[in-house]
Design a protein around this nucleic acid. Structure first.
Lengths: 225, 225
DNA sequence: TGACTATGACTGACCGGTCAGTCATGAATT
DNA sequence: AATTCATGACTGACCGGTCAGTCATAGTCA
């Protein structure tokens, strides 16, 4: 025990209490929650950058500004930490997207709003890499793949199908077969996400523009009478 | 390897030695090549199943029926082995696909033949998982990502674009914007590959059928008049 | 309020297993 | 005999997980 690490000075003030400049939030539970959050963010960052197997808990701890042991106060082990992490990040996004659609306007507009939101919220953020991470680690984490399928894919497909059927009923969509493969609707968005994280530096892709072209394919050329 | 105490067979002179021996490859170079091939296949299998970091060289060796040291007679280390592996698997596929298109028939037929071949040759084989592997490990192996971009993606995009422009010129394709985003053309195929390796067990996907619907979108409903 | 104690969040040195890479040994080939 | 190839026991670095000890904080009492 030679040096006393600075510890307390780390946290950026939460700015709640004006009088006291208290770097660490005072309350114990609050501090714990903060640390937990820091661990989650650090872990996400590291897992995305290195993949599950190559990520070192020491690095997560260092990035989170926490000792390694602390991680084990919040998570059982590396594996369940990873699984829980995915849930923690996905759930709020799904919730956001779920309660999005205001049932008005043309189907095309609906889809466009939806997909654009997705692009903005997911494709161009850290969450985009999370999708890649799931693709990468899914086969080795059935629990993660299952969860992702149930919470995201299945719902997404169902929603898309409903929209497509509506579009067909209203005569906006000509291609009937599309209802059997809603995947086609989102394929370019997915491709954008993967493209960006792999080839952005070779050839950046204008995801929004690509999406528009794709929707033109499905709904016919922009018919803004 | 119960090898007969045979001789070389490489003999320059006429067959002084027995004209025997090929069940177990006799020639030394041939045997080495065989082992190399076995290592490559085993490694591919393991890397696909576990990812780069989690793959053990001991397992590769065991699967290849070879001692670990032997691997190092053929590859510098784990990392360059992985990179070389990707090249070794991709190159022949690219060659096959490159020399495929016989320039005849409608553009739609051309595209359909091409994509179907791709589905058959890639999506439903071990090579499909290789695509997922590249997506997974790409960010950590710039060399692999670069190679893949140059050899596969760039060429593929260029080829698709040429086809699309031809289709537009011939009036088969209405949507002009497609030429700017050839990615859209192959998006469903890529999605198929990823879908199969992640969700096959939840909900198998008829890739060929999906492809047909997608092509209907682009070329208009089957117009076999 | 101030002093004293109990709590448990947090730490980080440590342990044990794992695994990439090496190399002395022996076998096969020339 | 000399050379080339293959082997697998071995080494040492690395890393997930542990736990005895520390100390800020909350609780208790006067």
């Amino acid at each position: 025990m030679t040096l006393k690490p600075t510890k307390t000075v780390v946290a950026p003030a939460n700015g709640t209490s004006g009088t006291r400049a208290e770097p660490p939030s005072s309350n114990r539970a609050a501090r714990a929650a903060e640390r937990r959050q820091a661990i989650i963010e650090a872990a996400l960052e590291e897992f995305i950058a290195r993949g599950f197997a190559a990520t070192r808990l020491d690095d997560i701890a260092k990035r989170a500004g926490v000792a390694k042991g602390t991680i084990y106060l919040h998570f059982k082990d590396k594996e369940s930490m990873f699984e829980e992490l995915v849930r923690l990040v996905i759930v709020p996004v799904v919730e956001r997207l779920t309660k999005l659609p205001p049932p008005a306007g043309s189907v095309r507009d609906l889809v466009e709003v939806f997909a654009s939101t997705f692009l903005r919220e997911v494709a161009s953020t850290r969450r985009g890499d999370l999708v890649r991470l799931i693709v990468a680690e899914g086969p080795r984490f059935p629990a993660v793949a299952d969860f992702y399928y149930r919470e995201v894919v299945q719902r997404g497909i169902a929603g898309m199908r409903a929209l497509i059927e509506l579009g067909i009923a209203r005569g906006e969509i000509r291609e009937k077969g599309l209802a059997k493969f809603p995947q086609i609707l989102v394929a370019p968005v997915l491709i954008s996400v993967i493209w960006q994280s792999l080839f952005e530096r070779h050839a950046p892709l204008d995801a929004q523009a690509m999406l528009r072209v794709h929707l033109d394919l499905i709904f016919g050329e922009r018919r803004t009478t």
